[in-house]
């Protein structure tokens, strides 16, 4: 099954980014394809590469980057990103800034869209 993920909250501040990640791992283990992960609202903050979380805690930014390296589309809404100082220069590796229309496109293509947020 093709599953799209919409993430609407930033990392650490809210559990949403963790829940989305755990769900994605479990879905892939069950043989599903994560079509894309789309960051919207404060979710775009998941794509900033300047953060340095404590070393004894999980690195949420790195998780997304690693997922991207494994072929999952990590997409960042351009309009939401511009409001929050997220741009190409500080983007985590393997993520792409894209238009909001991509989200609708994902919802059309995927069998499921699962939203994580506040």
């Amino acid at each position: 099954m093709k599953i799209g993920i919409l993430l609407k909250e930033g990392p650490y501040n809210h559990q949403a980014a963790d829940s989305a990640y755990q769900f994605i791992q479990a879905a892939r283990k069950r043989g599903h394809e994560i079509e894309s992960v789309f960051f919207y609202n404060d979710g775009v903050n998941n794509a900033a590469n300047k953060a340095e979380p404590p070393q004894d805690d999980r690195n949420i930014y790195q998780r997304w980057s690693d997922l991207g390296a494994e072929g999952v589309n990590i997409l960042v809404c351009v309009a939401a990103a511009k409001r929050r100082s997220i741009n190409e220069e500080i983007l985590i590796e393997n993520a792409t800034i894209t238009g909001l229309g991509q989200l609708t496109d994902i919802a059309i293509r995927a069998d499921r869209l699962v939203t994580f947020g506040d």
Binding site: M1, Q22, F23, V114, T115, F116, G117
Partner: peptide, 19 residues
């Protein structure tokens, strides 16, 4: 249920997340 069970529910249903 664990996350595996969560995914199984999603296999069988569209999702409505009450944010």
């Amino acid at each position: 249920i664990d996350y595996d069970g969560f995914v199984e529910l999603v296999e069988n249903h569209q999702v409505n997340s009450w944010l």
